[in-house]
């Protein structure tokens, strides 16, 4: 770990100013990811801007939806009565991730910016394009059971590890950010990026922008939803594949479908065509299988992770069944519903 200076501003504008004045600076919120990366010498910030004093800890009503401050801890968010009642999909996805201790520290903004769990990314002795652009991608031809089957590039096949982000993608949230030139809002689907030839960039946030809030739209799918996460132990592991599914049903038919996958791509993966395909279809297995095939039509494995294509197909079908039946996956009982 390197030496760094430390500041703790009280106002958003001051925080943004600090960041803009020093390209080596980093915001730190819960620190559950950034500190690990510093200990591994993957990140070496010259300055830490502790943002935990900023007034971004509230959950507020906005236009029928909710505005979640960037510093709301993951556990507070998951157990907030408004979230539990109106956006149980989000609560469920958060509770599927990490551990209670980590969720107590982790923040809404930090969760969106957590970095991949690719083992090479964490080990500075090995080549990794995301860490050191141009050095090569060790995961290709290496250990890649956790890696992407969708949207990968020859430069990087890493996945985004967030569970919360998968629910936010399905719910079509917006991310409100502040930079030196003021505020802007980024639709969730455009927040994270595919690796392309710039795998060092996980998202479209500018270096000097601060996340202020995540805004949830009014539609909340509280009746027919699920978050199904498959992993290598029953809890406290990152997703091999996860599925956020939400349906609006009318007379046994699907009036609207939302579907997002985790653990399969460089970003929470949404396929609007598959969602469209489900519209008007009967809420039954045949429709779900079609949607799954559609989502995975471009999927590609890299050896160890080939199995994910079939696993994802099955997970999508099961998640849609759970959502349609109104029997969402419990995150405490590990039996798959």
């Amino acid at each position: 770990m390197n030496r760094f200076s430390y500041v703790r501003p009280d106002a958003v504008a001051a925080a943004v100013r600090e960041r803009a004045s020093d390209p080596g600076a980093r915001f730190i919120a819960g620190g559950t990811n950034l500190l690990d990366l510093m200990k591994y010498d993957v990140e070496a910030p010259s300055r830490l801007i502790d943002i935990t004093r900023l007034p971004l800890r509230d959950i507020q009503e906005i236009d029928g939806g909710l505005r979640i401050g960037a510093l709301v801890p993951n556990s507070d968010l998951a157990y907030d009565p408004r979230i539990e009642e109106r956006y149980p999909l989000l609560a469920s996805a958060i509770l599927a991730g990490a551990s209670p201790q980590l969720r107590n520290m982790a923040t809404t903004g930090g969760n969106l910016l957590q970095r991949t769990r690719c083992v090479y990314f964490y080990d500075t002795a090995t080549p990794c394009n995301k860490r050191t652009p141009g050095s090569g991608c060790s995961a290709i031809g290496g250990i890649n059971r956790q890696h992407a089957i969708l949207g990968a590039s020859e430069h990087c096949i890493a996945t985004n590890p967030s569970d919360m982000g998968v629910a936010l993608a399905a719910l079509r949230a917006n991310v409100r950010v502040a930079g030196p030139d003021g505020e802007r809002t980024i639709p969730f689907s455009e927040f994270h990026r595919l690796p392309g030839d710039e795998p060092q960039r996980d998202n479209n946030l500018a270096a000097d922008e601060l996340i202020l809030s995540v805004d949830l739209p009014a539609e909340h799918f509280a009746a027919n939803y699920t978050y199904l996460k498959l992993r290598e132990r029953l809890s406290y592991a990152f997703a091999l594949v996860s599925v956020a599914a939400a349906l609006r049903l009318e007379d046994g038919k699907i009036a609207e479908a939302r579907l997002a996958l985790g653990g399969v791509a460089h970003k929470p993966w949404r396929d609007e065509e598959a969602e469209e395909l489900l519209r008007g279809q009967p809420a039954e297995r045949a429709s779900f299988e079609q949607a799954a095939l559609r989502i995975l039509s471009g999927a590609r494995g890299f050896g160890e992770n080939d199995f994910k294509i079939e696993l994802a197909r099955r997970a999508i079908v099961r998640a849609l069944e759970q959502a349609a039946a109104g029997t969402p996956q419990s995150q405490s009982d590990k039996r798959v519903q």
Partner: peptide, 11 residues
């Protein structure tokens, strides 16, 4: 990882 002769999931 046999290319590096290294145990990679070292945490």
């Amino acid at each position: 990882d046999h290319r590096f002769g290294r145990f990679m999931n070292h945490n």
